[in-house]
Design a protein around this nucleic acid. Structure first.
Length: 190
DNA sequence: ACACGGATACTA
DNA sequence: AGTATCCGTGTC
């Protein structure tokens, strides 16, 4: 697969969350010199999606109000793992896209060190694993990668085969098939 | 199968 | 203050 060097435009995130989640598959995510191809995402909608943080968290609704589309929404889950989302805003529906898995491409030595593993398939094959591999934590919450140089998203040229399934690990709205992934990719979470 | 662990938002 | 919940991972 070949990838162009041009970053994504902010308007990429001014569409509905499902379109953003699907189109992020195959894009390259870079963070401080480390990164990989996005192979698994999930969409969360701020409207009528009980699994979305905006449904139960006033602070999340405030985040949507106060940040531009494409901002990093990072939170600690189960008191253990940081999870990386991107804010979707300005289209028909607001929401988030959760980054669930990467295929490592850049800075793998650093990722191996932080993950304490040399198996590439264990570096970023899960939403908590990939933040640990990239060194992402709560200090990145609210980062606008269109402003700084911390975070870069590069568009995919080739269109990968994208499959769809229900989202993983949630207790509400479990039936919605809003998880997107490259079928049979060895770097998926589940 | 189960422990680990903290932010957030409730009840009072 | 105390309790319930939570978009997971590693090891048992």
């Amino acid at each position: 697969m070949k990838y162009q060097a041009t970053p994504l435009d902010r308007r990429f995130f001014e569409r509905d969350p499902l379109t953003c989640a699907r189109d992020l598959i195959g894009c390259e995510l870079l963070w401080r010199g480390c990164g990989g191809l996005i192979v698994e995402t999930e969409a969360y909608s701020a409207q009528s999606d009980e699994a979305c943080h905006t449904f139960s968290r006033p602070s999340s609704r405030r985040f949507v109000e106060e940040h531009p589309p494409g901002s990093a929404y990072i939170y600690l889950n189960y008191g253990v793992h940081w999870l990386l989302n991107f804010l979707v805003k300005g289209g028909p529906e607001d929401g988030f896209v959760l980054i669930r898995a990467l295929e490592p491409t850049r800075g793998t030595p650093g990722m191996c060190r932080r993950r304490k593993s040399n198996d590439l398939r264990l570096l970023c094959s899960g939403p908590g694993k990939l933040t640990q591999a990239l060194g992402i934590d709560g200090s990145g919450h609210g980062v606008d990668f269109f402003q700084g140089n911390l975070l870069t998203l590069r568009a995919a040229i080739a269109t990968p085969r994208i499959a769809q399934s229900p989202r993983i690990g949630i207790s509400k709205a479990t039936a919605l098939p809003w998880r997107f992934f490259i079928k049979d990719n060895p770097h998926l979470s589940a």
